[in-house]
């Protein structure tokens, strides 16, 4: 009897060992090691490098002076113009993108329209940088098609009226080209997530179309819309190629300043250059925290 028990025990143990692979600390981590090593080298190291250098003076001692030096008129104005452009294009592109996404989801457009517009949005949101700048020069530059068309047909010379492609307005118009398609891609799933049951329940309870929009649909979508706009903000805040090819440094965006600092120490103060870049990350971090909070809210609402 005793013997029997013992042998059964040993067999069960042996079986368990065979069936269940032994998980050691090492074997668990080996699968993700490449990812962490890679990101350590190419994300963490460069970031830590910039941040640590931003807190050092020329002799390598710890200092906060670099950040204090950011508060000069020139540097603040370049942050400010970047923020203004990002804000403007996020709101304008966000609205246009939302309205178009609304049209292809809730609005009654023919079925084919949706996939066509989503494809074009994919193209346009990826079509940024050098060629986009060229395209807008050909469109709204001094001899651009729209400029000439307005002058010849409608006798409106926009350049005499103070328009300039290399200005705040010009750059905003150019950025919007990739902003609104991105908004379409970001917001369409949220619009798809609106249940028809909500509309019918509202109607059933006596709500008009307007009441439904105001009290149900827009409040539900607001976190997603704001979240989308924050993504657009970041998208334009970090844009360098488009701005550089379009203005060649004419407009003092923060990305252009950082770019110049990489090429050569134009600020005559390496530490200040690093602080400049770290400042951009701080702005982005603040934005991403908002984004995260908004996303949490909308996901919580829409959870089943």
């Amino acid at each position: 009897m005793l013997n029997n028990d013992k042998s059964t025990n040993t067999t069960t143990n042996g079986d368990a060992r065979n069936v269940r692979p032994h998980h050691s600390f090492f074997s668990d981590w080996i699968g993700v090691a490449p990812f962490f090593i890679f990101t350590l080298f190419f994300i963490v190291l460069p970031s830590v490098g910039l941040v640590s250098r931003a807190f050092q003076d020329n002799a390598g001692n710890f200092t906060l002076q670099n950040f204090a030096n950011l508060f000069t008129r020139e540097i603040l104005s370049s942050y400010w113009i970047s923020i203004r452009i990002s804000f403007t294009t996020a709101v304008a592109g966000g609205l246009l993108g939302f309205l178009m996404a609304y049209a292809i989801t809730v609005g009654k457009l023919p079925a084919g329209g949706r996939s066509v517009i989503l494809t074009f949005s994919g193209v346009a949101s990826n079509f940024a940088g050098v060629p986009l700048a060229f395209a807008f020069v050909a469109t709204m530059g001094r001899t651009g098609m729209i400029t000439v068309l307005l002058k010849n047909v409608f006798h409106i010379n926009i350049y005499n009226m103070g328009f300039n492609l290399y200005s705040f307005l010009g750059l905003s118009l150019t950025y919007t080209f990739f902003q609104f398609p991105l908004m379409i891609l970001v917001i369409t799933p949220a619009l798809d997530g609106l249940k028809t049951d909500w509309r019918e329940a509202a109607e059933n309870l006596g709500a008009s179309q307007g009441t439904y929009l105001r009290k149900v649909m827009l409040p539900i979508l607001t976190p997603s819309i704001l979240g989308g706009m924050i993504l657009l903000f970041g998208n334009s805040f970090g844009a360098y190629a488009t701005a550089y090819s379009l203005t060649g440094g004419f407009l003092n965006l923060i990305t252009i300043m950082v770019g110049a600092q990489i090429k050569g120490d134009v600020l005559y103060n390496p530490g200040l250059g690093y602080a400049l870049a770290v400042g951009m990350v701080i702005v982005m971090l603040i934005m991403m925290i908002f984004y995260y909070l908004l996303r949490q809210r909308s996901e919580r609402w829409l959870r089943k």
């Binding site: 019918e200 329940a201 059933n204 009290k215 149900v216 539900i220 609402w301």
Partner: peptide, 18 residues
């Protein structure tokens, strides 16, 4: 539907999440 004064309960509850 809004003028019928008929109450309806949906399979998905359809409570307004906001």
């Amino acid at each position: 539907p809004r003028d019928r004064n008929i109450g309806m309960v949906f399979q998905s509850y359809a409570l307004f999440p906001n």
